[in-house]
Design a protein around this nucleic acid. Structure first.
Lengths: 167, 167
DNA sequence: TTTTTGATTGATACTGACTTTCAATAGCAG
DNA sequence: CTGCTATTGAAAGTCAGTATCAATCAAAAA
């Protein structure tokens, strides 16, 4: 669609698209949803629900946890978010901005550090495999669990004991 | 290690290796652990804890859920199981038999059908990426979420057996 | 074989992510 | 402004997995 190189322009466009989506579906534009969207557009990296909620209640303390989860579900339905399975603990999400290429992820099992990257070779192999195996692609994630190289003497990542990903 | 082509021979060998591991570590060979191992060796495909427990209690109804989880943790420590992240609901496992090559997985988001496959191209790219990004490989999973082609009129997989549902 | 020791067990309660319920509230169309 | 109903927050529920703890039992020692 739009190819602007300015991310804030794209965010504004996306925010309008989301509002259009809500109106078209008969959903309402509430102050809670606006607060969640605003917070969403501030985060550059992928995130999970609890993380998002933490940030949202700093702007509007009245927004409840269920509302955050419900809004994420809504945005997922609208195709504005991409679900990322980076570990069993929490569901991660990525904002589906038009200027953002499809990304793969690598996560450190010890400290939860996440690196996003692109790899056309993988994407091509991925598509071929899906076809070969008779599947319809829905949500493709190339995920590698590994330990990053900030290792301590026990062979584990130094950041291990930090609470889950405060990036 | 051993390259026998007879899986049952390998299972017997593996079962001995597990017992050796337990003894070496000062762990005990209990009837509960034996029941769990026996069930484990009967399943050809990957599995998750609840699934395993269901099968185990058919042989020995007294085995408790915590014991199954504890035994899986133990086997994981010993390197006899490989953890597979196939969806956020449950932790899946694969038996690390010597005759079993490293496998990748594709899972149907709708019906949870899992296909195991090998792909040397992926493995090579995987290793290169890990090195490039400065990670130490720990548990590499190439996972694709997709829908298998057994689709019904609503565009969803017919075998859909999960309770999650979107209108 | 019996004793001893502490690893292991099942019952129970708990955690943490996420969902459901429901009465009250608040968008928004008229 | 009014009425309809989508949405909300609080509270309770679900579900996979974990921690606690007294009782039990594997297995080494006597």
């Amino acid at each position: 669609m739009n190819q602007s190189k300015d991310p804030s322009t794209n965010n504004a466009l996306l925010q309008k698209e989301i509002k259009d989506f809500l109106q078209k579906k008969g959903f309402r534009i509430t102050k809670q949803r606006l607060a969640i969207l605003e917070t969403l557009f501030q985060s550059k990296d992928c995130f999970h629900a609890e993380e998002l909620w933490d940030k949202v209640i700093q702007e509007d303390a009245s927004v409840s946890r269920p509302t955050v989860y419900r809004t994420l579900k809504l945005l997922l339905e609208g195709g504005f978010l991409r679900p990322l399975d980076l570990g069993r603990d929490q569901q991660y999400y990525d904002l589906n901005t038009p200027d953002q290429a499809k990304q793969n992820h690598i996560i450190c099992k010890d400290c939860n550090k996440i690196i996003e990257f692109n790899d056309p070779c993988l994407d091509i192999r991925e598509s071929a495999l899906i076809k070969e195996l008779g599947f319809n692609p829905k949500n493709m994630t190339f995920k590698v669990e590994a330990t990053c190289q900030e290792l301590n003497s026990t062979g584990q990542c130094d950041r291990k004991d930090t609470e889950s990903d405060q990036e």
